[in-house]
Computed example of a mutant assay.
Amino acid sequence: MADQPRKPPIQPQTTSKRQWSLADFDVGKPLGKGKFGRVYLAREIKSKYIVALKVIFKEQIEKYGLQHQLRREMEIQTALRHPNVLRLHGWFHDDERIFLILEYAHGGELYRELRKLGHLSETQAATGRVKIADFGWSVQSRSKRHTMCGTLDYLAPEMVEKKAHDYSVDNWTLGILCYEFLYGVPPFEAESQMDTFKRYTV
């Protein structure tokens, strides 16, 4: 990994004439497994650049009707350029799978680290380099929305109460995450979703 170039040679397929394929990569150990596919450590053969290769099974995406959501997630993540956003370099597909070429975050998943440690110190919570990697429920919108999506423990009250809301609900979620970093659990966590909802409304 020490031989990696400072700037990735890989560019998103939307801005590059290069058509990627699995033959362009040496695929290594698995990094994680989800409902719709798996993530592997991989190296682009020509440049030796290390990436995470996310493999999504088309059958699963079609089964749950998530084609539009996946397309939106890819478009948003490709367009974002920020040190705290995991970079989506490009993608390609074959008959059965979609491959996302992602920036490799060597620190692994924050949630896994938090479960291992129990909680973070104030210094760790304040100065760690976190990267947002999942854009499954994200939208690009300037208008207020009424959609309730996400995990109840992290939702802002206006979302739980199904009121109109905008991007400012992300500030609430950030506060919930900071609390969980320091104490190991979200502040409104309960045995059931109904009990969590009651804690919100008390």
Rank of each mutant, 00 (worst) to 15 (best):
Q11N: 09
Q11M: 09
P12W: 04
S16D: 15
Q19A: 12
W20C: 04
D24F: 08
F25Y: 11
K29I: 06
P30T: 15
K33M: 11
K35P: 01
G37A: 00
V39T: 15
Y40P: 01
E44Y: 01
I50H: 13
L53W: 02
F57M: 02
F57T: 04
E59K: 14
Q60V: 05
K63D: 07
Y64G: 00
M74L: 12
E75N: 15
Q77D: 06
T78I: 13
T78G: 03
H82L: 04
P83E: 08
V85S: 06
V85G: 10
L86V: 14
D95N: 15
D95C: 12
R97K: 14
L100I: 01
E103V: 03
E109K: 01
R112P: 00
E113M: 04
E113G: 00
G118K: 01
T123V: 11
Q124P: 02
V130D: 00
K131S: 01
A133L: 02
W137H: 03
S141E: 14
K144I: 05
K144E: 15
T147A: 12
D153F: 00
Y154I: 09
L155Y: 02
P157S: 02
P157A: 02
E158V: 09
M159D: 00
V160F: 10
K163T: 07
D166M: 09
D166K: 09
S168M: 11
S168V: 10
D170Y: 07
T173M: 09
T173V: 13
L174Y: 04
L174R: 01
I176P: 06
P187T: 15
P187R: 12
A190R: 07
D195C: 01
F197W: 05
V202L: 10
